[in-house]
């Protein structure tokens, strides 16, 4: 392993943002989660290659970083579609019909939870309570919280994401 080559796969912007985090923390390894989230914002997910590069930049082993990565739900270690759709499956949404709604979403997109549409547009995932239980059922598409979701609105909702 030629060490410097690994880090070089990260873009200047990524390295700059990661270093900015490190500057505010007592040690570099404390930036592990932030660093993975930064790379994910740039690339959509964290590949093995990205992971190794981040580990090297932070001065830790790839295995140690991977064990952190796999602990967290929002760090994607597999490629995802252009948009990530997360449907809430927690209790308030459940009470308001989320199980039925999930099936409608699966039918609408033609995929099941955990899958990506053939055109690479949407990845469908479950999510725990989105903190908008008074507007149940809810889902999130990328950074957008979508409230009071009904089967009738699905076409209009997904139509907004190219």
């Amino acid at each position: 392993m030629a060490e410097p080559a690994l880090v070089q796969m990260l873009s200047d912007a990524e390295v700059r943002e990661i270093e900015a985090e490190c500057a505010h923390l007592p040690d570099r390894q404390s930036a592990a989660i932030d660093a993975m989230m930064i790379v994910q914002r740039h690339r959509g997910w964290v590949s093995d290659e990205s992971l190794a590069a981040i580990a090297q930049l932070l001065g830790m082993s790839t295995a140690a970083l991977d064990s952190i990565a796999t602990f967290y739900n929002l760090i994607y270690r597999k490629p995802v579609g252009r948009h990530v759709v997360m449907v809430c499956d927690s209790v308030s949404c459940y009470v308001m019909g989320a199980d039925g709604l999930r099936k409608q979403v699966e039918n609408h997109l033609g995929v099941q939870l955990g899958q990506t549409t053939a055109d690479g547009r949407f990845t469908l995932l479950p999510i725990v309570c989105l903190g908008a239980c008074d507007k149940a059922p809810t889902m999130m598409i990328d950074d957008d919280l979508i409230e009071n979701v009904t089967a009738e609105r699905l076409g209009e909702i997904f139509g907004g994401y190219a």
Binding site: I33, D34, M37, Y72, L74, I75
Partner: peptide
């Protein structure tokens, strides 16, 4: 900003997560 896991709300797990570790 957390990377998502309910247990990180438990205050000592939260501190581990804040330090960039498993929560």
């Amino acid at each position: 900003r957390s990377a998502g896991r309910y247990i990180c709300g438990e205050e000592t797990a939260l501190l581990n997560a804040l330090e960039g570790k498993r929560g």
